[in-house]
Design a protein around this nucleic acid. Structure first.
Lengths: 192, 192
DNA sequence: GGTTTACCATACTCTAGCGTATGGTCACAG
DNA sequence: CTGTGACCATACGCTAGAGTATGGTAAACC
């Protein structure tokens, strides 16, 4: 009944299911997060699943919550402690590619924006992020309204980039082409 | 066997199915384009469908082709005959909201970018559109590389806007807030 | 007027996934 | 060593949708 030594894991927890669910979402999208495939991948059957959760919906909800918390910590950790607002804005873009899993999950969530449990998450996340961005722009001397618009604009660029990535239309993240583009975006959208 | 008078339609054609499919996609997304629901909505059964098409995949392919053609005509018609490149760029953004159906279909296609039949369409469309944009920027005196980056940037803004729209996070298209934002985008991204 | 052909209905089969019911097992408490 | 509860397997039933097989009908044609 105790967790057993962490190497072998004789028994699963709800958190294990949630993590596995997020893995699957990252790989194949929200709608592919089905419970029988999940169980197979974890080497058990759905008999196990329905002991931990009451339904697929329930797992999805919990997994999304877990992801959202993780993302929130990321936002605060990586953008909170950078003093200069310009660096904060730049790090927003550079953060693409780091935190691979979290990022892939987010991309798949965007693709599933229509889902009733996904939408509110995306909404909250977008709100938080845009507020962060707007604050940074204000700290750089922008009028509040302008800063809000600029934040929306830059966040849209980010979302659009993700969309192009889903369509295989972004240069490899390590290429010069990519670097040049990022440079361009920064120069165009972030005042000196 | 003849088309019959166009008011009453006694019998369906493949084109009818394709159009209905696009309607459904616009309303509920690609994965909701199932053939039995479609048949119900059209007042027939799938017996009819399988006479016109060999499979669901086949219908999807044809419907997407039809959409792509329509979209291409749109691009040429609305952006081709505008002289001043600046006006052409502006009209690119203003075009959101007009051509409602085509536009909603596109939005849903973006959400289904992972689908093997959807992806190449999105790729071609994005390519064409970004080329158009890049040409306009070049006509305004930009270096080719810069124009390419700027085209990608502005197209990303467009895609990001669609994403936010799917998340219910865009102001009503007729609001002042929206107008102000569009103004901001144009001023920021399109040189005078 | 009988035949063909275009179009559609009906009645299947098959699959994947959700959810339920029930029973087994192993650890640990007493 | 007996029981209890945590965890899981097995075996169901149910639904939606894909695809097939087959037969019906009405218009067109010879």
């Amino acid at each position: 009944m105790k967790p057993a030594q962490k190497g072998e894991r004789t028994t699963l927890s709800a958190a294990d299911w949630e993590r596995a669910a997020l893995d699957l979402i990252a790989e194949q999208g929200v709608q592919a997060m089905a419970i029988e495939p999940l169980a197979r991948r974890m080497g058990v059957t759905k008999g196990s699943f329905y002991w931990h959760f009451s339904s697929r919906e329930s797992l999805l909800k919990q997994a999304l919550l877990r992801w959202e918390k993780h993302d929130l910590r990321n936002l605060n950790a990586s953008l909170g402690k950078i003093d200069h607002p310009r660096d904060r804005l730049i790090s927003f873009f550079r953060r693409v590619g780091k935190e691979k899993l979290t990022h892939e999950v987010f991309s798949e969530l965007c693709a599933a924006a229509g889902h009733p449990h996904v939408e509110p998450v995306l909404e909250r996340v977008a709100d938080r992020r845009m507020k962060h961005l707007a604050v940074a722009f204000e700290e750089m001397g922008m009028e509040p309204d302008l800063a809000r618009h600029q934040a929306r604009l830059i966040y849209s660029v980010y979302l659009g980039f993700l969309q192009l990535q889903r369509q295989q239309q972004t240069p490899s993240l390590s290429s010069e082409e990519f670097e040049a583009y990022i440079e361009h975006v920064i120069n165009t959208l972030i005042p000196a």
